[in-house]
Design a protein around this nucleic acid. Structure first.
Lengths: 324, 324
DNA sequence: CCACCACTGAAAATACCTTTCAGGAATGAG
DNA sequence: CTCATTCCTGAAAGGTATTTTCAGTGGTGG
């Protein structure tokens, strides 16, 4: 993980910008919101200062135009200084503004052949169902692509390795993330691992105390700051277990106690599409990757287990029209 | 500043009989494909000097790499000088090298967007994690697109209508589908509906008996033949409730007792990617569509409820260094 | 052989990007 | 409520990349 990101943002959570209309939005140009860049901006925005957010949003809003602007011009256009622009570029992961500009040109080119503008718009109360379906599908697809692109493979590799050799796996998640945790647990159980999902914070902590070195604790939280899952993870961490965090905020408090951090990309949210809903897709992809990775590494054990659990379920299906 | 430079370049047409080159227009003309750059280089090559051709060919041969080079680096790499590089950029229709570089990044991005191809293959035991991530993401994206395309909007409309006016909603699902059911239930509860998820078949039947006309029962089953969810749906159906089925097999047994059938598309499965895993994505999309549809139709009630549940969760997030 | 012309690259000039530094607003402690 | 602290912010200095200028070189035709 990058030092500067972590250190710079770790103690920043002052702002609670969320809320549907929190974005001032300096008149973003036509279309263009669904790029990988836009996702990165959304993910990192909370750890940005106000003026940096202005720059980031302007850039994400119209990459094509911004790629033609010089630092000075962009600074002027966003009402900030060159220094702030450069700082923003750094935070977005580029060595400097020059490189951001180059990347911007790339995004702009990709947008040329991009999706129709209608599906990138926000969901409105009076949208017909056809639009709702199209927009939801588009956004979830975007989230998947963004998450896959941003996933840190080395972290994933380490997480998979820890899980594959774990004596026992505990998974913490509350609310919507609890379901993701159960999904992972179900699948790990299926291939012969000892895994438990906890959504009750007290029970989670109680169980976390039992963990030892060689065990794995995995916390799932979109915000990265959910006390109820951070606390058991901390206990597990202190107990010597290997800890993994699946979060949309790699700079959140949960990262403090995580040996490995897996970042999920954040989709745009709105009133009709809360964060809990949009984050789920990315979390599930990460969880699936973990599962497949573990299944690969424990294939000798997993293969018969997968077949066995399949057979066991067969009689639960009616024989009637069956032709699987 | 561009005036005199254009004047300088204009008097160059000395030995260029290739007439059509007259005002090829700004380089960023729409519809520029990946080969557009190469074609332009070929067209203009005859009017180039020897060293300029070297530059042009290098640039056309590997736009991605060249976009990362400075004017000095490119000059060195082509064995020429900076001045020549700039002259070449001008001849290709750009104001200067900076802009050529930007365009190069664009071309590179477009080439990048081309099909990776390998992602459509099945997941193998020895696939590296990078491939696993790419393939999983690709397949889930495919499932989403397929499901969205195949979704019967009239059935969806009716299902949403039934849910929005329901006195009570029961959701049945077992195994992986149970989590989808819980997801839907969580969200419906959030906007003020009375919803319950049942994964215990006996309890499900027990509750189904209580349903009346105006209530809604919703069954989730990928196979369409899962006894444990068909049975409670049948009971609900007989009790007069409106019944909805979310299934990958619209011809399955579950459809017999469903007033409305919502079909989810099935992704290819394999040993490392069981049906339960691939079906989940489509089911969740359908469930999200149902939720948003209901939220739209009950907006007066849903809007404050959404805000309220958001507020209620706020204190569950650490403000700063808070310990439990 | 000479004169001419155009190409080429080194270096100066400029524009652009990056870094530094000090003022100032927000935050938390007393 | 006041003060100390921290951190954000922009102006300006400093450095790098790009552009322009200009003189040298090689080729070509007379």
């Amino acid at each position: 993980m990058t030092k500067e990101t972590f250190g710079g943002a770790a103690d920043r959570d002052r702002d609670a910008p969320v809320g549907p209309a929190a974005v001032p939005g300096p008149a973003t140009a036509p279309g263009a919101g669904g790029t990988a860049l836009a996702a990165k901006v959304r993910t990192l925005a909370p750890s940005m200062t106000r003026s940096m957010q202005r720059v980031a949003e302007t850039v994400a809003g119209d990459p094509a135009a911004c790629s033609r602007l010089t630092v000075t011009a962009l600074a002027q256009r966003t009402g900030t200084s060159e220094a702030t622009v450069v700082r923003t570029a750094r935070l977005l992961g580029y060595p400097g503004y020059r490189d951001l500009r180059l990347a911007l040109a790339g995004f702009a080119a990709q947008l040329e052949a991009g999706a129709p503008a209608s599906v990138t718009a926000d969901i409105a109360v009076d949208d017909p169902l056809a639009d709702v379906v199209a927009k939801l599908a588009h956004d979830e697809r975007q989230t998947l692509a963004d998450t896959a692109a941003a996933l840190d493979l080395s972290q994933l590799e380490l997480a998979v390795g820890a899980l594959a050799t774990a004596r026992r796996v505990d998974v913490y998640g509350v609310g919507a993330s609890a379901l993701v945790g159960q999904d992972l647990t179900q699948k790990l159980l299926r291939i012969g691992l000892v895994a438990h999902a906890h959504s009750d914070p007290h029970l989670a902590v109680t169980n976390a105390v039992q963990l030892r070195q060689g065990d794995v604790a995995l916390a799932i939280t979109h915000s990265g700051n959910t006390v109820d899952v951070i606390e058991p993870l901390r206990v597990a961490f202190d107990a010597g277990a290997t800890t993994i965090a699946v979060t949309g905020r790699p700079d959140g408090a949960v990262a403090q106690y995580a040996d490995h951090v897996l970042t999920t990309s954040t989709a745009r949210e709105s009133e009709l599409r809360p964060a809990a809903m949009s984050s789920r897709t990315g979390q599930l992809l990460v969880v699936d990757c973990l599962f497949v990775g573990v299944a690969q590494r424990t294939y000798e054990r997993a293969a018969p287990a997968l077949s066995a659990s399949y057979e066991a379920l067969a009689h639960r299906h009616t024989a009637r029209t069956t032709r699987l």
